[in-house]
Design a protein around this nucleic acid. Structure first.
Lengths: 144, 144
DNA sequence: TGTAAGGCTTCCCATCATGGGAAGGTCAAG
DNA sequence: CTTGACCTTCCCATGATGGGAAGCCTTACA
C-alpha cells in the first residue's frame, strides 16, 4: 500500500502520515526500491488509532503514550484510565473557561442595542469602563 | 514610560507589546534618543483594551477590528454586536465539540476497570473495536 | 567617576498540529 | 514514449506566546 492508499484507508492525510513518522510516532512497513513508503493493514490500524485519539482531543504526546500502552500487553487499565481522566479534567477546565467568556459576552450583547447608534456596552467593557458589573464582582482578574 | 512600565501598567508582557507593534496593532508614542519605546496613558489604555478582548477569547484579528471600531466615533453598536455574536457562536461550537469528547471519554472511563488488568475499553475504542456503542450511533464520523 | 546590575534593543528559535507548494523522481495507462 | 497522477524531500505559514543571546543604555551606588 502506498501512502495515498494508507491515507484513504485511515482518514489521515499523507502529509500527517509523514509528519507522524518524522516525530517517531509511526513507521512504514518499509520502502520500495524507488523509495516509496509501503504500509500494511497493521500500520493502517495504528493510523486509525491515532486519528480516533486525536478526535477525542488527546495531544500527539498523549496519543503516543496511549499507543505504547495499546501495544504493551502487560499494561494495566489503570494507567490508561489515568491519562483519560487527566484529559477529561483538562477539557472540562477549558470548557469552563470558555463558558465564562460566553456568559460575559452574552451579558454584554444583551445590554448592547445593536442599532445604528455608537453607544456600545461591549466596547465600554473592553475599554475598562465598567458597564457590566455582574461579571467582575471583585478585582480586575482576567477570565483567562 | 518605558516598555517595562507599560507592561506593568497594562498586564501585557513586553514581549507581546513588541509583537503587537510588529503586526501593526499598536504603536508606541515615540522613541527616546537611545531608541527606547515610550508609552503614555493612551497607549496603556489600548493595551488594556487588547488584554481584555483577548481574555474574552477574541483573536488578535477580531481584537484589531474591535479596536478600530472603538476608535471610530461613527461606528454603530450593531457592528460591534455582530462580531461579539459571531464569536459567541464560535465559542459555543467549540464548547459543544469538547463536551462531546468529554461525554465519550467519561463513558469509556466509566466502563474501564482502572485496575491492574490489561483489559481496557478505552484502548478498545481507540483501536476501533466498538466497545462504546452509545456515542457513535451511525458511521465512523469523527467527533472533531 | 567607575562599575555593576538591570532594562532596553533586535534577531532567531520553539511551541502544536496542520496545510501549501516547489522541485524533481516514479509509475501506469494510453 | 509521453502524459498525468503519484511519490519524494525541503521550506514556509499559521496563532499567540515565550526563551534566550548579543549588545547597547541607564541608574544607582561606592
Amino acid at each position: 500500500m502506498n501512502i495515498g492508499e494508507a491515507s484513504g484507508a485511515s482518514g489521515v492525510s499523507a502529509k500527517m502520515i509523514r509528519y507522524y513518522e518524522q516525530i517517531g510516532l509511526i513507521a512504514p512497513k518499509g520502502r520500495t526500491q524507488s523509495n516509496y513508503r509501503v504500509y500494511g493493514e497493521q500500520e493502517v490500524h495504528v493510523l486509525r488509532f491515532i486519528k480516533r485519539a486525536r478526535s477525542l482531543g488527546f495531544s500527539l504526546e498523549e496519543t503516543e503514550t496511549l499507543l505504547k500502552l495499546w501495544q504493551d500487553k502487560s499494561r494495566t487499565s489503570a494507567s490508561v484510565k489515568e491519562i483519560a481522566t487527566t484529559h477529561i479534567n483538562d477539557l472540562e477546565r477549558r470548557i469552563a473557561e470558555m463558558q465564562g467568556m460566553v456568559k460575559t459576552l452574552k451579558h454584554l450583547s444583551h445590554c448592547c442595542g445593536g442599532d445604528h447608534r455608537p453607544d456600545c456596552p461591549i466596547l465600554d467593557d473592553l475599554a475598562g469602563e465598567r458597564a457590566a458589573p455582574s461579571d467582575k464582582p471583585k478585582s480586575g482578574e482576567s477570565v483567562a
